[in-house]
Design a protein around this nucleic acid. Structure first.
Lengths: 147, 147
DNA sequence: CAAGAAAAATATGTATACATACCATCTCAG
DNA sequence: CTGAGATGGTATGTATACATATTTTTCTTG
């Protein structure tokens, strides 16, 4: 038994598949948004005016990485950034009309595509897998749901 | 229900955790090898003289990506590349003594660390998760085990 | 054997992903 | 208020990850 079959390898493969399915489906629908950008939009829409560090914490990302992600969302016109009045270091991020429209349009697509990622599993197995994945990850580090 | 809880997000988080555990443990042991580099070494040791495209296929990687990975392994003295005599386009990759020694030394470490990635799961759950992950991924695309 | 298709690498460009360093700003101790 | 430490963001450097284009070489087909 070698590196194949190990947890790390399997998880990496799953991530590849997931990313592949996501970009294929979303691009087929005529949008240019990555999985990460979608997750960021989700957090931004759920918490308007959240600063970048907050967005990063919400989706378990690196502060340095989220900067670039939000740069691209801003370039596409999906979000706007403004210096916070309370803390001049912080940049508050808000979705634009176009951003919300884009999210609303691809959300059903993305929801539907989730089962495709695990299409080799029976519905029951899929549910079991997701439950185990959630347990393996544990509670979200940065933010709670009812924030 | 939003982006958290979706398969893609969960899988990405798992991958983060896995990568984190790997590099932490391996670096603590005094080695400078990534998960991907380890997987590549595994394939190279299992199939001496395999070309880069073969390595990429063995671990389900992109040909463009594997080039850089092998560059770094070569810089560290773990592998050597030579132009194939049969096909002058191909670069055959072989592990060096240092490469084999490194691999042998961290293999038990890496094996041990696999359960740490899923430490929140009970042993039974862990096995179930891995079985489901294997099924979800399906048969390896590029190479078969008994090559 | 020549023309064209196919394949192996590499190069280029974009997008994560993260450590580290750095600057600006805020908070807190005193 | 002042200095120290913490925090938000950016910059830099490294390492995936992959699409696409390009080059070199091989294979195919006539």
């Amino acid at each position: 038994m070698k590196a194949h079959g190990m947890a790390g390898h399997l998880i990496r493969r799953l991530n590849q598949i997931s990313t592949q399915v996501f970009s294929t489906r979303v691009q087929a629908a005529g949008f240019d948004v990555t999985q990460v950008q979608f997750a960021a939009m989700d957090a931004i829409l759920a918490h308007p005016g959240l600063d970048q560090a907050g967005v990063a914490a919400a989706i378990a990302y690196d502060r340095a990485t989220i900067g670039g992600v939000i740069d691209r969302l801003e370039q596409k016109g999906y979000v706007v950034r403004a210096v916070s009045k309370r803390d001049r270091r912080a940049r508050e991020v808000r979705a634009t009309e176009a951003g919300r429209a884009m999210f609303d349009e691809i959300l059903p697509l993305v929801t539907a595509l989730q089962s495709e990622v695990l299409e080799r599993l029976e519905p029951k197995e899929r549910a079991a897998f997701l439950a185990l994945a959630r347990k393996a990850i544990g509670p979200a580090p940065g933010m709670t749901e009812q924030g």
